[in-house]
Simulated scan of single mutants.
Amino acid sequence: MRIGCPKEIKPQEFRVGVTPNAALEAVNHGHEVVIETNAGLGAGFDDDAYRAVGASILDTAEEVFETADMVVKVKEPQAVERKRLREGQVLFTYLHLAPDEPQTRDLLESGVTAIAYETVTDRSGGLPLLAPMSEVAGRLAPQVGAWTLQKANGGRGVLMGGVPGVGPAKVIVIGGGVVGTHAAKIAAGMGADVTVLDRSLPRLRYLDDVFGGTFRNGYSSAGLLAELLPQADMVVGAVLIPGAAAPKLISRADLGIMKPGAALVDVAIDQGGCFETSRATTHHDPVYEVDGIMHYCVANMPGAVARTSTIALGNATMPFMLALADKGWRKACADDVHLLAGLNTHAGQLTYEAVGEALRIETIPAADALKV
């Protein structure tokens, strides 16, 4: 199989879909790997690093899309990239289709077989290809939130850890999954007063058992949020419903009870965001204000630490990429129900129910697509 990796063109996206190590594994499996020139520079991998492991360098993205049997990326294909996709081709990348009808319609029109990192599952019910970036984004959230809280950036002018005689910032993390856990650990490590909210009692018990008094936790409810929001300096939105649009947990009206200059960091923005007032921003212009509350809603947060993120993502995606290349997508998905869960579109049909529900598009079971 010919595996192609174009350079990411989403603004301020420096990651790359295939690392030199992954390219070497694919070449050793007998596959051809083609990389767009300079695709890896943002993550610290120059063209020679790919040539050294047997990959070929192509001059343009058009050549990569035109010749690749499988396109491996990081972010969802942009409009110009979607025009280059075709039926019979496999696209393996993050998609986040539920809040993005234009992308969904374009993928269906192209006929491409699109497998989304964020809906591939594992035996424990986890999301193994989302987890590395969730870890990165969770750890980044308090860092960018602390920056947003600085007065020069529009924030309250509050230091996360305080100083002797002055209390620390109060941080609420909504969601106790991978993102929320890592966000809470880092925020607490910065000295903040942290409370994690979740609706899973087993998860809350786990957090209490593992982290003890490092941070508090509570059962997430509208009543508890209403009690905590007036005290909060920062709120991290870390709620995920796999493949579906994120629920709106803080309304615009809620902003009125918050402290002026408080920071909202929406890590769920790829799935539409979990604050009513969220809209996607970029690293170039990451923060905006609504009703006196600062919003940080960068849709590709891990791109800020591109080398760490690229290597972490490559470690997770490589086994699945090799399975798709070695067996072909049909057999690879037939052999692995967890990889099959990643199938979102095939031959003009939508195969992921949560996306169909969000966008009101008819779906077929992913297993039925194996026969098409």
Rank of each mutant, 00 (worst) to 15 (best):
M1P: 08
M1W: 05
C5F: 08
P6T: 00
V16C: 11
A26P: 00
N28V: 13
G30E: 03
G30A: 02
G30P: 02
H31Q: 03
V34E: 13
I35G: 08
E36V: 08
G40I: 03
Y50S: 06
A55G: 07
D59L: 15
V64P: 04
E66D: 15
P77T: 09
E87A: 15
Y94G: 09
Y94H: 15
P128N: 11
L129N: 09
A141E: 12
V166Y: 02
T181W: 09
A183D: 07
A184K: 01
K185W: 10
D193F: 10
V210M: 12
T214I: 06
A226C: 10
L229R: 14
P230M: 10
A232P: 13
V235C: 07
V239P: 00
G243L: 01
P247E: 01
G256M: 14
G256E: 15
G261W: 02
D270V: 09
H284F: 14
P286G: 06
V290P: 11
M294A: 07
C297P: 03
P302Q: 08
G303H: 08
T310Y: 07
A316G: 01
M321V: 15
A323V: 04
A325I: 02
A325F: 00
H338D: 04
H338N: 08
N344L: 02
T345D: 06
G348M: 04
Y352N: 11
G356I: 07
L359E: 06
I361K: 02
D368K: 14
